[in-house]
Simulated scan of single mutants.
Amino acid sequence: MTNFLETDQGRKIAYHKTGGEGPTVVFLGGLKSDMEGTKAIHLEAFCKARGQSFLRFDYSGHGESSEKFTDGCIGDWHEDTVAAVTALTAGPLIVVGSSMGGWQALLLARAMPERLMGLVGIAAAPDFTEDGYWAGFTDMQKEQMETQGYVELPSDYMEPYIITKRMIEDGRTRLVLREDLNLPFPVRLLQGTADTAVSTETAVRLLDHAQSPDMRLQLVKDADHRFSDDTCLGLIEAAVAEITDLANA
Protein backbone atom coordinates (compact mmCIF):
# COMPACT_ATOMS: atom_id res chain seq x y z
CA MET A 1 0.00 0.00 0.00
CA THR A 2 1.24 3.48 -0.85
CA ASN A 3 2.03 5.79 2.07
CA PHE A 4 2.17 9.59 1.96
CA LEU A 5 4.48 12.12 3.55
CA GLU A 6 3.53 15.81 3.78
CA THR A 7 6.51 18.12 3.28
CA ASP A 8 7.10 21.52 4.89
CA GLN A 9 6.02 23.03 1.56
CA GLY A 10 2.63 21.27 1.85
CA ARG A 11 3.28 18.74 -0.91
CA LYS A 12 2.14 15.14 -0.44
CA ILE A 13 4.84 12.66 -1.43
CA ALA A 14 3.85 9.07 -2.20
CA TYR A 15 6.34 6.43 -1.07
CA HIS A 16 7.03 2.77 -0.39
CA LYS A 17 9.51 1.80 2.32
CA THR A 18 10.69 -1.71 3.14
CA GLY A 19 12.65 -2.45 6.30
CA GLY A 20 15.91 -4.28 6.82
CA GLU A 21 19.54 -3.68 7.58
CA GLY A 22 21.43 -0.60 6.45
CA PRO A 23 22.71 1.15 4.53
CA THR A 24 19.28 2.10 3.21
CA VAL A 25 19.07 2.11 -0.58
CA VAL A 26 17.14 5.12 -1.92
CA PHE A 27 15.96 5.09 -5.53
CA LEU A 28 15.58 8.47 -7.28
CA GLY A 29 13.67 8.27 -10.55
CA GLY A 30 13.89 10.29 -13.73
CA LEU A 31 11.93 13.19 -15.15
CA LYS A 32 8.24 12.27 -15.55
CA SER A 33 9.05 8.76 -14.33
CA ASP A 34 7.55 7.25 -11.20
CA MET A 35 8.33 4.77 -8.44
CA GLU A 36 6.52 1.95 -10.27
CA GLY A 37 9.20 1.75 -12.98
CA THR A 38 11.09 -1.46 -13.76
CA LYS A 39 14.36 -0.39 -12.10
CA ALA A 40 12.70 0.79 -8.87
CA ILE A 41 10.56 -2.33 -8.45
CA HIS A 42 13.43 -4.65 -9.34
CA LEU A 43 15.80 -2.95 -6.91
CA GLU A 44 13.19 -3.11 -4.16
CA ALA A 45 12.84 -6.89 -4.64
CA PHE A 46 16.64 -7.26 -4.72
CA CYS A 47 17.05 -5.36 -1.44
CA LYS A 48 14.15 -7.21 0.19
CA ALA A 49 15.75 -10.55 -0.67
CA ARG A 50 19.03 -9.34 0.86
CA GLY A 51 17.31 -8.01 4.00
CA GLN A 52 18.37 -4.47 3.11
CA SER A 53 16.28 -1.38 3.80
CA PHE A 54 14.88 0.35 0.68
CA LEU A 55 12.94 3.52 -0.16
CA ARG A 56 11.27 4.59 -3.41
CA PHE A 57 9.02 7.63 -3.80
CA ASP A 58 7.41 9.96 -6.33
CA TYR A 59 8.53 13.57 -6.58
CA SER A 60 5.70 16.10 -6.51
CA GLY A 61 3.99 16.27 -9.90
CA HIS A 62 5.01 12.65 -10.56
CA GLY A 63 3.16 9.38 -10.06
CA GLU A 64 0.85 9.33 -7.05
CA SER A 65 2.23 12.46 -5.38
CA SER A 66 0.40 15.79 -5.28
CA GLU A 67 0.87 18.81 -7.57
CA LYS A 68 1.14 19.14 -11.35
CA PHE A 69 4.32 18.26 -13.23
CA THR A 70 4.32 21.61 -15.02
CA ASP A 71 4.40 23.47 -11.67
CA GLY A 72 7.58 21.70 -10.55
CA CYS A 73 11.29 22.24 -11.03
CA ILE A 74 14.63 20.71 -10.05
CA GLY A 75 14.66 22.62 -6.74
CA ASP A 76 11.17 21.46 -5.75
CA TRP A 77 12.13 17.85 -6.42
CA HIS A 78 15.34 18.32 -4.44
CA GLU A 79 13.24 19.57 -1.52
CA ASP A 80 11.01 16.50 -1.89
CA THR A 81 14.09 14.23 -1.87
CA VAL A 82 15.56 15.84 1.24
CA ALA A 83 12.17 15.67 2.99
CA ALA A 84 11.68 11.99 2.14
CA VAL A 85 15.20 10.97 3.13
CA THR A 86 15.11 12.99 6.37
CA ALA A 87 11.69 11.77 7.50
CA LEU A 88 11.76 8.19 6.29
CA THR A 89 15.35 6.97 6.72
CA ALA A 90 17.97 6.89 9.44
CA GLY A 91 21.69 6.23 9.27
CA PRO A 92 23.82 5.62 6.19
CA LEU A 93 22.43 5.73 2.65
CA ILE A 94 23.27 4.37 -0.78
CA VAL A 95 21.55 6.54 -3.36
CA VAL A 96 20.66 5.19 -6.81
CA GLY A 97 19.72 7.92 -9.28
CA SER A 98 18.34 7.33 -12.78
CA SER A 99 18.61 10.10 -15.39
CA MET A 100 17.28 13.26 -13.68
CA GLY A 101 17.50 11.21 -10.48
CA GLY A 102 21.26 11.15 -11.03
CA TRP A 103 21.28 14.95 -10.78
CA GLN A 104 19.05 14.69 -7.70
CA ALA A 105 21.49 12.19 -6.17
CA LEU A 106 24.36 14.64 -6.68
CA LEU A 107 22.33 17.47 -5.12
CA LEU A 108 21.56 15.20 -2.16
CA ALA A 109 25.26 14.38 -1.84
CA ARG A 110 25.98 18.10 -1.71
CA ALA A 111 23.23 18.67 0.87
CA MET A 112 24.07 15.80 3.24
CA PRO A 113 27.45 14.22 2.38
CA GLU A 114 27.75 12.77 5.88
CA ARG A 115 24.78 10.43 5.27
CA LEU A 116 25.90 8.95 1.95
CA MET A 117 28.00 5.80 1.84
CA GLY A 118 27.86 5.55 -1.93
CA LEU A 119 26.11 6.61 -5.12
CA VAL A 120 25.04 4.74 -8.23
CA GLY A 121 24.20 6.83 -11.31
CA ILE A 122 22.20 5.22 -14.13
CA ALA A 123 22.44 7.43 -17.23
CA ALA A 124 22.89 10.31 -14.80
CA ALA A 125 21.81 13.65 -16.28
CA PRO A 126 23.31 16.50 -14.23
CA ASP A 127 22.60 20.05 -15.45
CA PHE A 128 20.38 18.80 -18.31
CA THR A 129 18.02 21.79 -18.15
CA GLU A 130 20.94 24.02 -19.17
CA ASP A 131 23.24 21.76 -21.20
CA GLY A 132 20.49 19.72 -22.83
CA TYR A 133 17.31 21.77 -23.10
CA TRP A 134 18.47 25.41 -23.12
CA ALA A 135 21.61 24.72 -25.15
CA GLY A 136 19.52 22.87 -27.74
CA PHE A 137 16.71 25.40 -28.06
CA THR A 138 16.40 27.33 -31.29
CA ASP A 139 16.09 31.11 -31.20
CA MET A 140 12.37 30.64 -31.81
CA GLN A 141 12.04 28.28 -28.84
CA LYS A 142 13.95 30.68 -26.59
CA GLU A 143 11.63 33.47 -27.67
CA GLN A 144 8.65 31.17 -27.04
CA MET A 145 9.97 30.51 -23.54
CA GLU A 146 10.04 34.25 -22.87
CA THR A 147 6.62 35.02 -24.35
CA GLN A 148 4.47 32.04 -23.31
CA GLY A 149 6.56 30.68 -20.42
CA TYR A 150 7.08 27.15 -21.74
CA VAL A 151 8.22 25.02 -24.66
CA GLU A 152 6.85 21.63 -25.75
CA LEU A 153 9.46 18.99 -26.55
CA PRO A 154 8.74 15.61 -28.15
CA SER A 155 9.64 12.51 -26.13
CA ASP A 156 10.70 9.06 -27.30
CA TYR A 157 8.85 7.53 -24.38
CA MET A 158 5.57 9.40 -23.73
CA GLU A 159 3.58 12.54 -24.52
CA PRO A 160 5.58 15.74 -25.12
CA TYR A 161 7.46 17.28 -22.23
CA ILE A 162 6.31 20.74 -21.20
CA ILE A 163 9.51 22.56 -20.25
CA THR A 164 8.69 25.70 -18.28
CA LYS A 165 10.64 28.90 -17.86
CA ARG A 166 10.66 28.21 -14.12
CA MET A 167 12.32 24.82 -14.66
CA ILE A 168 15.07 26.38 -16.77
CA GLU A 169 15.67 29.31 -14.43
CA ASP A 170 15.61 27.19 -11.27
CA GLY A 171 17.90 24.63 -12.93
CA ARG A 172 20.53 27.35 -13.30
CA THR A 173 20.66 27.67 -9.51
CA ARG A 174 21.19 23.91 -9.09
CA LEU A 175 24.04 23.21 -11.53
CA VAL A 176 26.67 20.77 -10.26
CA LEU A 177 29.20 20.65 -13.12
CA ARG A 178 30.29 24.31 -12.87
CA GLU A 179 31.92 24.20 -9.45
CA ASP A 180 33.70 21.68 -7.21
CA LEU A 181 31.72 18.48 -6.76
CA ASN A 182 33.12 16.47 -3.89
CA LEU A 183 31.79 12.93 -3.56
CA PRO A 184 33.72 11.44 -0.60
CA PHE A 185 32.47 7.86 -1.10
CA PRO A 186 32.40 5.16 -3.80
CA VAL A 187 30.56 6.15 -6.99
CA ARG A 188 29.48 3.81 -9.80
CA LEU A 189 28.20 5.32 -13.05
CA LEU A 190 26.35 3.08 -15.54
CA GLN A 191 25.71 4.31 -19.07
CA GLY A 192 24.38 2.76 -22.28
CA THR A 193 26.07 3.68 -25.57
CA ALA A 194 22.72 3.65 -27.43
CA ASP A 195 21.16 6.17 -25.02
CA THR A 196 19.55 8.96 -27.08
CA ALA A 197 18.56 11.04 -24.02
CA VAL A 198 21.88 11.19 -22.15
CA SER A 199 25.15 10.95 -24.05
CA THR A 200 28.27 9.04 -23.08
CA GLU A 201 29.99 12.46 -23.22
CA THR A 202 27.82 13.55 -20.28
CA ALA A 203 28.90 10.49 -18.28
CA VAL A 204 32.58 11.12 -19.05
CA ARG A 205 32.20 14.81 -18.17
CA LEU A 206 30.76 13.88 -14.76
CA LEU A 207 33.54 11.33 -14.21
CA ASP A 208 36.20 13.92 -15.07
CA HIS A 209 34.61 16.69 -13.03
CA ALA A 210 33.78 15.07 -9.68
CA GLN A 211 36.29 14.35 -6.94
CA SER A 212 35.89 10.88 -5.43
CA PRO A 213 38.27 8.36 -3.84
CA ASP A 214 36.66 5.51 -5.81
CA MET A 215 34.70 6.45 -8.93
CA ARG A 216 34.12 4.26 -11.98
CA LEU A 217 32.14 4.52 -15.19
CA GLN A 218 30.85 1.39 -16.93
CA LEU A 219 29.67 1.73 -20.54
CA VAL A 220 27.26 -0.89 -21.87
CA LYS A 221 27.28 -1.28 -25.63
CA ASP A 222 23.84 -0.90 -27.26
CA ALA A 223 22.00 -0.29 -23.97
CA ASP A 224 19.41 2.49 -24.25
CA HIS A 225 18.16 5.11 -21.79
CA ARG A 226 15.77 2.71 -20.07
CA PHE A 227 18.73 0.57 -18.94
CA SER A 228 16.28 -2.07 -17.72
CA ASP A 229 16.89 -5.33 -19.56
CA ASP A 230 18.17 -8.30 -17.53
CA THR A 231 21.83 -7.49 -18.16
CA CYS A 232 21.46 -3.86 -17.11
CA LEU A 233 19.39 -4.74 -14.02
CA GLY A 234 22.14 -7.18 -13.06
CA LEU A 235 24.74 -4.41 -13.31
CA ILE A 236 22.63 -2.17 -11.07
CA GLU A 237 22.35 -5.00 -8.52
CA ALA A 238 26.11 -5.59 -8.64
CA ALA A 239 26.88 -1.89 -8.10
CA VAL A 240 24.56 -1.68 -5.08
CA ALA A 241 25.94 -4.92 -3.61
CA GLU A 242 29.54 -3.79 -4.10
CA ILE A 243 28.98 -0.40 -2.45
CA THR A 244 27.07 -2.07 0.41
CA ASP A 245 30.01 -4.43 1.01
CA LEU A 246 32.42 -1.49 0.99
CA ALA A 247 30.22 0.44 3.42
CA ASN A 248 29.99 -2.52 5.79
CA ALA A 249 33.66 -3.46 5.58
Rank of each mutant, 00 (worst) to 15 (best):
G91S: 04
T129G: 08
H78N: 14
N248Y: 01
K17S: 11
T86H: 09
R172G: 05
M215H: 02
T81V: 04
A123W: 00
V204C: 11
W134V: 07
R115F: 05
E64D: 10
E146K: 15
D8F: 02
R205W: 00
L107P: 04
R56G: 06
A210T: 03
T231A: 11
A14N: 06
P213H: 09
L107E: 08
G101V: 02
G118P: 03
L177Q: 05
F227C: 11
E64S: 13
S66M: 11
L55E: 11
A249S: 14
E237H: 09
D214C: 06
F46V: 15
T193R: 03
T196V: 05
Y150Q: 13
T18Y: 06
I163E: 12
D224M: 02
Y157D: 09
A135H: 08
K12N: 09
A49M: 10
A90P: 04
T38Q: 09
T164A: 03
A84W: 14
H62D: 02
L119S: 02
A109E: 03
R115W: 03
M117G: 15
R178A: 03
P113S: 10
A40F: 00
R166A: 07
V95T: 05
L5C: 06
F185A: 01
M35G: 02
D229A: 03
L207F: 06
M100E: 06
E79V: 01
L217A: 07
M167G: 01
V220A: 10
R166Y: 02
G121T: 09
V240R: 02
K165R: 14
V151D: 08
C73H: 15
L106V: 06
A247D: 04
L175Q: 10
L233N: 12
F185I: 01
A239H: 00
L233F: 01
R226F: 01
F128W: 13
V26C: 08
A241D: 12
H62G: 01
S33V: 05
Q144T: 15
T24I: 07
S33M: 11
D80K: 13
E79C: 04
A14H: 14
G22K: 09
